[in-house]
């Protein structure tokens, strides 16, 4: 019984820690804020270890983040075009 309570406590602690808001974007720490021209939000990746999907997602790697951003911007472009673009600077 004690073991069960301990496990439950551990799960609650993990859930609390991942739902902690990151100060920069307002996203939980297990996600990344991704903004595209028509949509934005906090994205997590989930892994399937053979039979079941993760209960809690993980923060995307930079490559995964880039792929998600690409996909969102690409899809935005098929929904009424692209947001205005900044004038180029002097790099």
């Amino acid at each position: 019984m004690k073991k069960m309570f301990l496990s439950l406590g551990f799960i609650v602690a993990v859930m609390f820690s991942v739902s902690a808001q990151s100060s920069q974007s307002g996203c939980p720490s297990n996600s990344t804020y991704i903004s595209a021209s028509c949509v934005s939000g906090c994205y997590s990746v989930y892994t399937n270890n053979g039979t079941i999907w993760d209960f809690i997602g993980k923060k995307p790697t930079t490559d995964q983040e880039n792929a998600i951003r690409d996909d969102l911007n690409r899809r935005c472009s098929t929904f009424g075009g692209q947001a205005s673009i900044d004038e180029p600077g002097n790099i």
Partner: peptide
């Protein structure tokens, strides 16, 4: 293992 992405907060992108 297989990977999938999920929106866990922010504007709804279900249409996308």
């Amino acid at each position: 293992p297989k990977i999938k992405v999920k929106l866990i907060g922010g504007s709804d992108d279900s249409e996308l």
